[in-house]
Design a protein around this nucleic acid. Structure first.
Lengths: 206, 206
DNA sequence: AACGCTATGCTTAGTCA
DNA sequence: ATGACTAAGCATAGCGT
């Protein structure tokens, strides 16, 4: 048995630069994740565009963007009232070329990322389609698929039985959401026995 | 006397875009402040540079930066000069801003295309996942899903019936591929009636 | 380095002034 | 809108793995 010899739980810390390097690294990771999560939530809740760029103590760059960093940065740099981009363009035309090239680089990287993502999704879609063999004519099903069907049906049976018990225990449907609404139409689970009707002429005898 | 109706204190909210505009505005202000505070703390604690750019729902721009936004953005834009970037700069030293901007526009369009493709795939994946709702507990199924289940079952019934007729017409399994192989194991469609056994104790009565 | 844990501390949704 | 207040919901410091 492990001896828990001290305080656990969050401790208050002073808002100074963390001295212990190890500690700092952990805190940086955690708080960076928290910050990005907060940003993500702000995007979702308020539907706004955000870009966050963080340079880690180790010199690495972490960024978060919605819809992506570059578009937000670009929007920031090229907004009408902006002075940054304007100044750079007018005062340092050469620097601007560098920036534009950097943007191109970033965009190319993002394109690569998106393409990879698309490929991954392609694979997922394939896998998903394969999971829908049950839609195929039954004579095309193999042994393992029939076994899967059987297992799924047994699972369904168990769920129906559980549901029936719930209905029995709580006839008013307490805790059962969006289920009573279709009773009129489907008469689904209208009985607490193991015989269930799923349509006018389709019965399942579990 | 003031009537304190009901709940006070923080309530859980779903991570969807806030509907009420007034509410959204308040939440945006609060959470933006919170985000910037978190960023500030991250700067202080870990001594890192950060830039945050937020486009408010009203179109205004809010930014936070340490030591300032522009330096961080510039550092971000001019980081790692990749080969692509380098090639463009070196190969076309006379490339003007117009050309580069055209390239950026082009890339942005490609990116949009890729993203749309990704989203489409996302939707397909979602649809695929939704087609597997039958794996979920039955009390979570909605009306349309139950109807889908019914339709699928009726399809299965028809297929099984056709299969049974085929078996009857061609008892040697002519033209029936990879179906007779599992007769021993599954005894699937061993009868030409409408009662089918899918396992030791699981029957479906169509 | 990344993850799990737990007990705080901190943030914030809803409301009122 | 801006700020205060309250009670919950969340984030996270310090530890172990």
């Amino acid at each position: 048995m492990v001896q828990k010899n001290a305080i656990q739980g969050r401790q208050k810390i002073t808002m100074k630069k963390i001295a212990k390097k190890n500690n700092l690294q952990v805190t940086f990771s955690k708080r960076r994740a928290g910050l990005f999560k907060k940003a993500s939530e702000l995007c979702t809740l308020c539907g706004v565009d955000i870009a966050i760029i963080v340079f880690s103590p180790a010199g690495k760059v972490f960024s978060f963007g919605h819809p992506n960093v570059d578009s937000a940065v670009h929007r920031f740099l090229t907004r009408n009232t902006s002075s940054v981009h304007y100044d750079i363009v007018e005062a340092h035309p050469n620097a601007n070329i560098r920036e534009l090239n950097a943007q191109i680089t970033n965009l190319l990287e993002m394109l690569e990322g998106e393409k990879r993502k698309g490929q991954a999704l392609d694979e997922v879609r394939e896998a998903g389609r394969r999971q829908c063999w049950w839609q195929a004519p039954i004579h095309e099903l193999g042994l393992s698929e029939l076994q899967q069907l059987r297992n799924a049906m047994e699972e369904l049976k168990r769920n129906v039985g559980k549901q029936a018990n719930l209905m029995q225990a709580a006839p008013n449907g307490v805790g059962i959401s969006n289920f009573g609404t279709q009773e009129n139409e489907m008469n689904a689970s209208s009985s607490i026995t193991q015989m269930h009707k799923f349509g006018p002429d389709l019965y399942f005898d579990f």
